[in-house]
């Protein structure tokens, strides 16, 4: 039913390969965008949480611990 890979798209290569290239680009963009969005807000949240903890500790007069992991 299935033979060897047929990568010769002629005479339609000018339409087939751009379709696959654009699909790959869009998927790459979706992956990069999703990961960048999540990483950015995760690091921002952690940074704000550390700042809030340091401020709370300072308010109570306790020594501020190094927040670095």
């Amino acid at each position: 039913m299935f033979g060897m890979l047929d990568l010769d798209a002629s005479p339609y290569g000018a339409f087939v390969w751009p379709a696959f290239a654009i699909t790959a680009l869009v998927f790459a963009g979706m992956v990069a965008g999703a990961l960048a969005h999540a990483r950015h807000w995760r690091s921002r949240t952690e940074s704000l949480r550390k700042t809030a903890e340091a401020a709370e500790a300072a308010r109570r007069g306790a020594p501020v611990q190094d927040a670095a992991p």
């Binding site: 969005h37 999540a38 950015h40 807000w41």
Partner: peptide, 10 residues
């Protein structure tokens, strides 16, 4: 799921 996680963190 990754984008929702990003939204929760935001």
């Amino acid at each position: 799921l990754v984008r929702i996680r990003g939204e929760v963190w935001r």
